[in-house]
Amino acid sequence: EIEQGFLPKGWEVRHAPNGRPFFIDHNTKTTTWEDPRLKIPAHLRG
């Protein structure tokens, strides 16, 4: 299961009806299937 707590500020994870997680960026009011944490360099992750 995906943990909400480690998402960047302003992001939220939800699950589509088929169970697939998607990510909501409230900063830009966009959604994506890609986990935003995967784009953060390892040394900047919490």
Rank of each mutant, 00 (worst) to 15 (best):
L38V: 13
E12Q: 08
G19D: 00
T28F: 02
R45S: 11
H15Y: 11
R20G: 01
N27V: 06
F6L: 15
R37D: 00
P36V: 00
D25V: 00
T31E: 06
F6G: 15
E12F: 07
N27W: 01
L38S: 13
N18C: 08
G19E: 03
R14V: 10
P8F: 07
P36R: 00
P36T: 00
G5S: 12
H43Y: 13
N27R: 07
T31W: 08
E1I: 14
H15T: 13
K29M: 08
G19V: 01
A42G: 14
T30W: 00
T32L: 01
L38D: 14
L44A: 15
Q4T: 09
W33K: 05
E1K: 12
P8S: 00
R14G: 11
L44V: 13
T30L: 08
R45A: 14
R20D: 09
K39R: 14
E12I: 03
F22V: 09
P41V: 11
R37S: 05
F23W: 11
G46C: 10
T32E: 03
K39T: 13
L7M: 10
I24E: 01
T28L: 07
P21K: 14
A16F: 01
Q4D: 08
P17I: 14
G10E: 04
F6A: 15
R20L: 09
H43M: 09
A42P: 12
E12T: 08
R14C: 12
H15F: 12
T31G: 06
P36D: 01
G19M: 01
I40Y: 08
V13P: 02
E34V: 10
I24R: 04
I24P: 01
H26M: 08
E12C: 02
A42L: 11
G5W: 12
K9Q: 12
R20Q: 15
R45D: 15
W11E: 07
P36W: 00
E34M: 13
W11A: 02
G19Q: 03
H15S: 12
P8Q: 02
L7S: 04
V13Y: 02
G5Y: 14
H26L: 05
E12S: 08
T30P: 00
L7W: 04
P8C: 00
R14M: 05
W11V: 06
N27M: 06
H15A: 12
E1Y: 15
F6Q: 08
P36Q: 00
W33F: 11
I2Y: 07
P36H: 03
G5F: 10
G19A: 03
T28Y: 04
D25Q: 00
N27G: 06
K29V: 02
R14P: 06
L38P: 12
H26R: 05
I2D: 14
P8L: 00
F22P: 02
H15D: 13
P17S: 13
R37V: 04
P8Y: 01
T28K: 09
P41T: 10
P41F: 04
P8E: 04
R37E: 02
K39V: 10
K39Y: 07
F23V: 03
K29P: 01
F22E: 06
A42Q: 14
D35L: 04
H26S: 05
G5T: 14
R45V: 13
T28Q: 05
F23N: 02
N27I: 12
P17E: 14
H43L: 12
L44T: 13
N18F: 02
Q4R: 14
K29A: 09
L7R: 00
A16P: 06
G10N: 11
D35V: 02
F6W: 13
H43P: 15
L38F: 09
T28C: 03
W11Q: 05
P21N: 05
T30H: 15
T30R: 10
V13K: 13
L44K: 10
R37A: 04
E1T: 15
G10Y: 02
T28V: 02
K9M: 07
T28E: 09
K29T: 04
I40D: 10
V13F: 10
K9F: 02
H43Q: 14
W33E: 09
P41H: 15
R37H: 08
P17T: 08
D35N: 00
Q4E: 15
W11P: 02
I40F: 09
P8K: 15
P41E: 10
T28P: 02
E34D: 07
A16G: 11
G10L: 00
V13E: 15
H15V: 10
A42V: 11
R45W: 10
N27T: 12
P21R: 11
G19T: 00
P8N: 04
A42N: 13
F6I: 15
F23I: 01
I40N: 10
I24H: 05
F6M: 07
T30Q: 09
R14S: 08
K29R: 13
T32D: 00
K39Q: 06
H15N: 11
I40V: 14
I2G: 10
H15W: 11
D35F: 01
R45Q: 11
I24K: 01
P17L: 10
G19I: 00
P41G: 06
R20W: 00
E34W: 08
H43R: 10
G19K: 02
R45M: 09
G19H: 05
K9A: 11
T32Y: 04
Q4N: 12
T32I: 05
F6S: 15
H26C: 06
T31R: 07
T30C: 08
T28A: 06
I24Q: 00
R45G: 14
P36E: 08
A42H: 12
E3N: 15
P21H: 04
P36L: 00
L7Y: 01
Q4C: 14
H26K: 07
P21Q: 13
A16Y: 03
L7V: 04
P17K: 11
E34Y: 08
H43N: 12
T30A: 07
R14W: 05
A42M: 10
L44C: 14
N27K: 10
R20P: 01
F23A: 06
P8I: 04
W33G: 06
P17R: 10
R20S: 12
K9I: 06
T32K: 02
R37Q: 03
A16W: 01
P17M: 13
P41L: 05
R37T: 08
A42Y: 09
F6D: 15
P21C: 12
T32M: 03
P8R: 03
F6K: 15
P21S: 09
T31L: 07
F6V: 14
V13T: 05
G5R: 11
T31H: 04
F22L: 11
E3S: 13
P17F: 05
I24Y: 15
E12A: 05
R14K: 15
